[in-house]
Structures are given as C-alpha cells and as structure tokens.
Design a protein around this nucleic acid. Structure first.
Lengths: 213, 213
DNA sequence: TCTTTGGATGAAGGAATCTTCAGTTTCGGA
DNA sequence: TCCGAAACTGAAGATTCCTTCATCCAAAGA
C-alpha cells in the first residue's frame, strides 16, 4: 500500500523567482490531471512531473515527497471550498436562519459540484495522506464561522450554535457524498438539494424559540 | 500507491475440510487486527499470514491477491451491518414511520459503534479496493428494504419512499461519519444521536400527508 | 496400513516506484 | 557583459512487497 507514515513536510524550497511559482502551480495542476486520467494507483511522481512539463527532480525541489504533493492538492481544494462557503456566510450576517442555511447549502454544493470529478478523486486519496487531519483543520474553522453566523440570526436559538452547525454540516456532507457517488451527479443533485433544503429547514425550525404553537 | 486495478477475484479455492474454514476465518480476523495495529500502510500479506499463524502461501491459497483479501473483509463487515439493519426493519413493518426511523437509527449506529476502530479502519482502505462498489451493492439492497418498509407505514406518504429512504440514510451516514471521526466517539454519540432523531423526525413530518395544519 | 487429495510452507523471483544528487541551464543584478 | 544564485535535469540507487511454486504434512477412505 501507499507510503509509510512520514513527517509530512512542507514545501522544501520557497519559490523566489516568478518562473518557479509557475512551476509549482503547474505541478499541482498536473497532479489533479494525472489523478483524473490515470487514477491514484498509477499516479507516480514521474508521471506528474512529465505532465507538468518538468523533470522529477524539479518536483522534489518543491515537495519533499509524494505524500506532501497530494496533501498540498487536497489543502488547496478544501480551501477553495472553504473560501466559497465563507463568502456566502458573510453576506448573511443578521439575516434569517433559513436564509443562512439556504445560501450555505447552495454555496457548498455549487463549490463541490464545480468539478465533481476532482472532488471525488481527492476524496479517494484522502485516506492515504491523512486527509482526515487536513479536512479537520479546514472544516473546523468553517464550522466555527458557521456557528458564529448562526448566533447572529434574527431568531432566538434554543440550542448551542456549534451543535446546530455541526448537525447541518454533517447532513450536508452526507447528502453531498451521496450525490457525488451516484452514477450521474448532474441528475441527482436537483431532487436531493430540494430535499436537503426541506430537511434542514425542518430541523432548524426545532431550534428556534417560541415557534412551537 | 496501492495495487493496480485487477480483476479482483473470489476465493481461489473453496474450503472443504473443516480446518481450512478455520484458516480462512483466522486470516480474515488477522487482517483486521493488522489493520488496527499496523495501519493500512504497513499491512502486508506476510504480516497478515504471520498474525493468523499460517504462511503466506496459505493465504494465497484462499485469496488471489491482497486486494481480494481486503475486499472480503469489507464485505463481511458491511454485511454484518446490513443484517443488523435488516433485522431492525423487519420488526417494524406496518408501524409508525417514526418508530421505523428510530429503530433504524439505533440499529445502524449501534452496529457501527460496536467497534468503532474497525469501522474507521475499513473506511480508510475502502478507496483502495473499490470499496465504493462493494458499499453500493450492500447498501442499495438495504436502501430498497428500507424504502419498502417505509411504504408500509401507517401514515400516508407524499413522496417516493425511495427518495425518503435515500435522504434518511445519507443523513445517517453523514452524522455517523462525524461521530466516527470525532476525537472521542463515545462522548459524541449521545448528543448527536439525539439531534439525529430530531432531524429525521422533523423531516419525516414533511413527508406525511394531511398533517400540515 | 496404504494411498490419495486437500492443506500448508516460505525462500526467492520480479516488478514498481520513490528519491537523490552531481551536473547543467537560466535569470537578474552589478 | 559577467557572475552568483535559483532552477532544472534525469539516470541510477535503494527499498519494499506481492506472488509463485516446488515440496512437505495431514486427513480420510479402502
């Protein structure tokens, strides 16, 4: 199986000249491409370097090992999604809880679906590179942002915002995973997103004070 | 990374004498143990054989390759959970939708939590052995069972039972995944299970005809 | 007891990659 | 124009494991 547990280092060298920045980007992009075309089993550092139009040596100049390379890709991808969610959140401070949830759901799904293949491929390697740890770092930050957003909602909440956020996000993950893993995500996303909205709304309703007639 | 995509065969030889059945079981058990103690990176066929108290050759007599070995473990595990859910379902035919959901949730979580470590470890290898395909086979059957169960509920449904089941199960997956991945599943499960019940109940309420006052 | 077939053994072959590093090329400032 | 630093190169070393197979052991029937 994959690599041994290693210190998982950071970029070995920091790009200084402009060309090297380009190179690093190219390598990262190439990694995704190789992942998509050859699959993770046949993703070799040589193949990545080749696709990026550089030599293996260059690759190893910026990434201490294959693991770090993949981790960098995953981080990048998760940050993109995180950013996107964060932006959505900021626009709904002090709004209604339901509006918050809706935009959150839309933003998250849109970000994931932007390119389904990549998301799925990265999901697959995640377990080989402690993706779990990376995901937690990224997503725990998101979770706090969402929780504090919920705390600003017009409605008065009867539960800990962190708990609510946690439930909503987990649900979102569960459903989006099903969408990603379905045969035709493009067809599945519509109906399931609808249900997701209904589901989350119904749940949030139970978190609001004084509505239970 | 792991193995190349292979035909992924089935047991190479079918146990005939009693002792060989014992051996196969031992190998399967050993695989889980090695997975837990060494991790998937260091799970080698030799290590498994050693732990099972047999030689590598014996292992290869029953499993054509490492991949098949892991797949067998995963299948076994998923079937156990599937069985458990199935049993829970059968006891609630014609009951209330909410009772069904509750027992489903309890059964599923109980099965997963029985030994958290194993579940988590198998999750991790899943992506190396087309676990996705295996999961779909097992869980699509479960999904149908659940859907047809929902169809027998006392309440009249306003949506396709398959859709409802799909949403419920995805949600269940999402939440249980969070539980599994949390630092201390034992402590997390209580509160999250509560929320899960609330969440699913609230959702099911929207699937019932004639209740919206 | 003898024979046949199932079951077990484990050293060694072989295939695949990751990573290194000595050496070359390119860039940018003096 | 010239030079030191930054980038880049890619063949070869080193490791790691999977898998095979020739051979031996054990059980059950004659």
């Amino acid at each position: 199986m994959p690599f041994a547990a290693q210190p998982a280092l950071h970029p070995r060298k920091t790009p200084i000249q402009a060309r090297s920045t380009v190179t690093v980007d190219a390598i990262l992009e190439a990694t995704i491409q190789v992942l998509l075309t050859l699959g993770k089993e046949r993703l070799t550092t040589t193949a990545v370097a080749h696709r990026a139009g550089v030599s293996v040596g260059t690759l190893y100049q910026y990434f201490p090992n294959k693991r770090a390379l993949l981790q960098a890709c995953l981080k990048r991808h998760m940050n993109e999604i995180g950013e996107s969610v964060l932006r959505a959140c900021e626009q709904h401070r002090n709004a209604s809880l339901f509006d918050m949830a809706d935009s959150l759901i839309y933003a998250y799904l849109a970000a994931k679906m932007r390119d389904v293949k990549t998301s799925a491929a990265l999901y697959a390697v995640a377990s080989d590179i402690e993706g779990h740890a990376i995901a937690q770092t990224t997503s725990s930050r998101s979770l706090h942002v969402i929780a504090s957003l919920f705390a600003t909602a017009r409605e008065r909440l009867t539960k800990d915002p962190e708990l609510i956020a946690s439930v909503v996000v987990s649900t979102l993950n569960g459903i989006s995973r099903r969408i990603l893993e379905s045969k035709s995500p493009e067809r599945t996303i519509g109906p399931l997103r609808e249900e997701l909205l209904v589901l989350v709304h119904a749940y949030l309703q139970t978190c609001i004070a004084g509505v239970n007639a």
